[in-house]
Design a protein around this nucleic acid. Structure first.
Length: 679
DNA sequence: AGCCCGTCGGTTTTT
DNA sequence: CCGACGGGCT
């Protein structure tokens, strides 16, 4: 018979006064969340209701009530979010929150797998494949198969996306093809075959892709209950942010993490689910009380962020969804400007408008960092970026191309990977193919030889190398040997690789190597913040270090830059002024979404997320004419979601070119064909 | 086998 | 605007 033994609270604990005045810092709803007793809690929190703030205080409260920081796990959507929240919590409790464990599901899983992967037959130093590494592995597999030549087979990135979608949605490949890639439905058999070989290859070579990090952790818990008990036993409280964007794998992980104690708090907003493409279903949030019996559901409804006029628009937007959201945000922040709907003649006008208005608002005292330009897809801001550069307005861009994904950065990082793990065949392939005279074929042969000869250390095998590349190969090994001497500082290792790589860079990317070199310098600059090579490599694999396009002279020294971001990457952030550009049919909603009602609803939620980022000023704009390469200009339509917005919620703006100043008394200007004055 | 160049097709969102 | 692929050359 099991018996419960009640441990009494240490009296000195009881007597302690809390350092933080929770009642003063939080509203009653927030306080209820922060001071909730253990057990499962679901917090349904609308946009701008202080969700992050509440979680930060919750962490502090738990620590103040006696929980060890290292027994708390905070799961967030990005590592950036975790860092920021724990930083704020530490600020409240002078550093005591630093030991709280936090990060993405992927990062937390890597920590667990590094400890226990051996139990699954994986090496402790298994290789983490990012999406493009995974695509490269798939490409090799595809090359070794006899595939139908006549019809168009999906390219490696698409194959990878299909396989990943199947894993994340927990659906067979056939379903993924039917719903998202009907054009490739005929290749189901081949794709299933590739999927099988891909699994084998990963297992055989000790590699895990992003999805495996979640899948294998679950597998580990399922196959080894002692591991599950150890890991879950280390957690006394599990906190999950953005629960509406977790998929079934992540939901299962939450359940496992909390399985020993049941202290789990999830925070989310069903109206802000924007990761359906990754297998998330915003309705999962309603399944939570069934997953965790006894769940206490708490709500945060009071919006502190936006003016009422912005909320009116947001409420109208979300009201158009087919699925009804039980939600109306309210605020006491009445007044403010009406959100503007700006009709720009074309993209150039739109960019000029944004730049000019940004500068105006800055004149009015809003710092650049409190303004953001949001868009559906990373490429929507290209024209604007040019214009910002021209005017010397500093900006950072989130979303889109990642530093770690650029080909030349991967080249350099592959050398470090080989140093870290001489059995990393993916990295070897890349490293070898940079040598002149070595292509895919020779590379895979040489990799086989290397793997045979090298155990934990690097050995240049004695083999019949062709004189075409033998010397270069020896030079590569000499560089690796020097850089790999134990105790060599990371920065020295990186410098050695960069010096070796420089001529390769010039040869491979002769058109734009100088631009790419700046990225490598940025990479070199990051090195200092990592303790060792493994730490750097792990960060590069798990953190999408955003490629900041900030080589613009700041207006004032060190003025924090304007933020450019995809809507997805702006989740959870807020700004005093928000510009939503390219709000047009085909972009928002995306052309891919228009034939599917559920996808269309998600586009609507994206618009909702964008609108609710704004506190005071909101400008929604779109270009009436777009230029296409061959077709020339064509007319666009404004987003259907804005077409039906009643007058009074949005103020229509149009852009007019400045007319020449009136008090001109001299002779009329000659024909206006001075090229400089035209824009 | 590898490299270079021309052509053509596809083009979201992220860990 | 980038990458995959085919053809011709080394």
């Amino acid at each position: 018979m099991a018996r419960s033994f009640v441990l009494k609270t240490d009296p000195s604990e009881q007597a302690r006064r809390y350092r933080i005045d929770y009642a003063a810092a939080l509203n009653p709803q927030q306080q209820a969340v922060v001071t909730a007793p253990g057990g499962p809690v679901l917090v349904v929190a609308g946009a701008g209701t202080g969700k992050t703030r509440t979680l930060v205080y919750r962490v502090a409260w738990l620590i103040e009530t006696g929980f060890a920081p290292e027994s708390i796990v905070l799961l967030t959507f990005t590592r950036r979010a975790a860092r920021e929240m724990l930083g704020r919590a530490s600020g409240l409790l002078d550093g005591r929150c630093d030991r709280v464990r936090g990060g993405t599901f992927h990062a937390v899983c890597v920590g667990i797998l590094r400890r226990f992967a051996v139990r699954l037959g994986f090496p402790q130093r298994f290789t983490i494949l990012d999406a493009s590494d995974a695509a490269d592995v798939i490409d090799v597999i595809r090359g070794g198969m006899d595939l139908p030549k006549k019809e168009r087979f999906p390219r490696k990135k698409t194959i990878q996306a299909i396989l990943s979608a199947a894993v994340n949605q927990g659906a067979p490949i056939a379903d993924v093809l039917e719903t998202r890639y009907p054009q490739f439905a005929a290749f189901e058999r081949e794709l299933v075959e590739i999927a099988g070989r891909y699994e084998q290859a990963k297992r055989g070579q000790g590699m895990m892709d992003y999805d495996d990090l979640l899948v294998r952790t679950l597998e580990l818990f399922r196959a080894h209950d002692d591991v599950r008990r150890i890991v879950a036993g280390e957690n006394r409280h599990v906190l999950v942010d953005e629960y509406q964007d977790t998929n079934r794998l992540q939901a299962a992980l939450v359940k496992a993490f909390a399985s020993e104690h049941g202290n789990v708090m999830a925070v989310g907003d069903d109206a802000q689910g924007i990761y359906r493409f990754r297998g998330a279903d915003f309705r999962n949030i309603f399944a939570y009380p069934e997953e965790f019996p006894g769940t206490r559901v708490l709500k945060l409804e009071h919006n502190y962020r936006s003016s009422q006029r912005i909320l009116d628009l947001a409420n109208h937007v979300i009201g158009q969804a087919r699925h009804r959201f039980d939600k109306a945000l309210f605020t006491e922040r009445t007044g403010g400007d009406l959100p503007a709907i700006v009709q720009a003649p074309d993209e150039r006008f739109e960019s000029r408008f944004v730049c000019q208005m940004v500068l105006d608002l800055r004149e009015q005292g809003i710092p650049l960092r409190d303004m953001a330009v949001l868009f559906r897809a990373a490429h929507n801001s290209y024209d604007l970026e040019t214009e910002l550069n021209r005017r010397g307005i500093p900006f950072v861009k989130y979303g889109g191309l990642k530093l770690a994904e650029a080909a030349h950065v991967k080249d350099v990082v592959s050398h470090l990977r080989v140093l870290d793990n001489p059995r990393d065949a993916v990295a070897w392939n890349r490293v070898l193919q940079m040598i002149e005279g070595i292509g895919p074929r020779t590379a895979s042969q040489v990799v086989d030889w290397i793997l045979e000869a090298s155990g934990e250390s690097l050995v240049l095998p004695e083999r019949p190398f062709s004189p075409r590349y033998a010397e270069a190969l020896a030079a590569l090994f000499e560089m690796l040997r020097r850089a790999g001497v134990p105790g060599t500082p990371l920065s020295v290792q990186v410098d050695a690789v960069l010096a070796y790589y420089e001529p390769v860079l010039r040869r491979l990317y002769y058109e734009d190597w100088e631009k790419r070199k700046q990225d490598l310098e940025q990479l070199a600059g990051l090195v200092g913040s990592y303790a060792d090579r493994a730490g750097l490599l792990e960060a590069l694999a798990l953190d999408p270090i955003e490629l900041a396009a900030v080589d613009v002279e700041p207006l004032d020294d060190d003025e924090a830059p304007l933020v450019l971001s995809t809507i997805h990457s702006a989740k959870g952030l807020e700004f005093r002024a928000v510009f939503l550009i390219h709000a047009m049919e085909g972009v928002l909603p995306s052309a891919y979404a228009v034939s599917d009602d559920d996808a269309l609803d998600e586009e609507l939620r994206l618009l909702y997320v964008a609108v609710t980022r704004a506190a005071d000023h909101l400008f929604v704009s779109w270009p009436m004419v777009q230029y296409q390469r061959f077709e020339g200009p064509y007319l666009t339509e404004p987003s259907r979601f804005l077409g039906s917005v009643p007058q009074g919620l949005l103020e229509p703006w149009s852009l007019v070119e400045e007319t020449p100043k009136a008090p001109w008394t001299g002779p009329l200007l000659p024909a206006p064909d001075e090229p400089e004055n035209r824009e």
